Computed example of a mutant assay.
Amino acid sequence: MTAPTINGTRYPQPIEDLLPAARDLDLPDGEDFPSRNRLMREFRIGAPKAGELLALLKAEATAPPADTAKTTTPDPAAAPAEPEPAAPVAPDPTPAPGITPPEPVEQVAEVGRPDTLATPKPVRPAVVWPVVLLALPAFVAVWSGWVGLGGLTGFGVVHPLPGIADGFSINTAITLPIGVETYGAYALYVWLSGRVPDAARRFAKWSALGSLAVGALGQVAYHLLVAANVTSAPWWITTAVSVLPVAVLGMGAALAHLVRSHD
């Protein structure tokens, strides 16, 4: 005769009814769950059902505990929290359809009110044409002085293309005013333009001042020699004047390099 299962019946019980009885089984020391064979013997069930019941017991043991936190009852005596102020909403600059935005009002300064805003008037650039009148007589004086000093220091007429153009000749004395004065004017422009790197601006400043000083000394030397009826300049003046074309070439190449430099 088949022994009855739980609740006095020998019919198979569902897993939900067997689970409480499986929790109440006495287990030997060192065991956390009953074995599948014991579940089969105790409840007269098959191996699949006993395995499912054992899996439910193990799942209950590993499930996290239920949230037992109690809801805090608000203190009626506590002051209610003030709501945070809403962030201001910036107005939409786009006008609504059909509405024409107002024209901006131009601020005009009042007479006798220095604290009021005034509309700036356009500034007219300074005229530069008087420089031409200043440069013409200076050009004549500087040109004649350098050419005369070149004649006293050995500069003169040469034939640069012998055998090619024997009739072509040039007075090398013109290289002095063209080289020295042209470089001085260009270096002065680079210095005062403010549109070049700092290294080029410093080089242009000092070389422009030096070129203008050399030009002034050349004019002084020429007029002193002519006033003293000297037909040939001393050796030290000849030496200084003869190296001017080479010095101008070197300074011009250096300044052109510095102007184009990005360092």
Rank of each mutant, 00 (worst) to 15 (best):
L249A: 15
Q219K: 09
A173I: 04
V243T: 10
S193A: 15
V241K: 00
R23E: 13
E16C: 02
P102R: 00
A78V: 04
L19W: 13
L19A: 13
A204T: 08
L258V: 02
I15Q: 14
R124P: 06
F33T: 14
R23V: 05
G215H: 05
A66H: 04
A96F: 09
N229I: 00
V123I: 12
L136E: 07
E52P: 07
L188V: 00
V248H: 04
V111K: 11
D32A: 08
L209W: 11
V248F: 07
A118L: 10
G8S: 02
V128A: 12
G112F: 02
A187K: 02
E52K: 14
P245V: 05
K121S: 07
E103G: 00
V105T: 10
V157S: 11
S242K: 07
P97V: 02
W143Q: 08
I170K: 04
I45K: 08
T116A: 11
F139D: 09
I164M: 11
E103T: 00
V131H: 05
D198E: 15
L25R: 13
R44D: 15
T172Y: 04
V243E: 06
A233V: 00
G51I: 03
D24S: 15
V158S: 01
P48R: 08
L39E: 05
A22Y: 05
V132W: 07
V132T: 13
S207C: 06
P74G: 03
A141N: 05
P65I: 03
E181D: 11
A254P: 00
M40S: 10
S211W: 07
N171V: 01
A227V: 14
L244V: 15
E52N: 10
V89K: 13
S144G: 12
F203W: 01
R36Y: 03
D29E: 15
L258Y: 07
L117G: 12
W129Y: 06
I178T: 14
A77G: 12
P65C: 02
A126D: 12
L134R: 10
Y183H: 15
R41S: 12
K205H: 15
G218Q: 05
A216N: 04
T231P: 02
G151T: 06
V226Y: 09
P114Y: 06
L161W: 06
V108E: 10
G210T: 05
P83S: 02
P137E: 02
N37I: 04
G51A: 14
H262F: 03
V147I: 10
P197D: 10
Q219C: 13
A138D: 09
P95L: 00
L217K: 14
E42V: 11
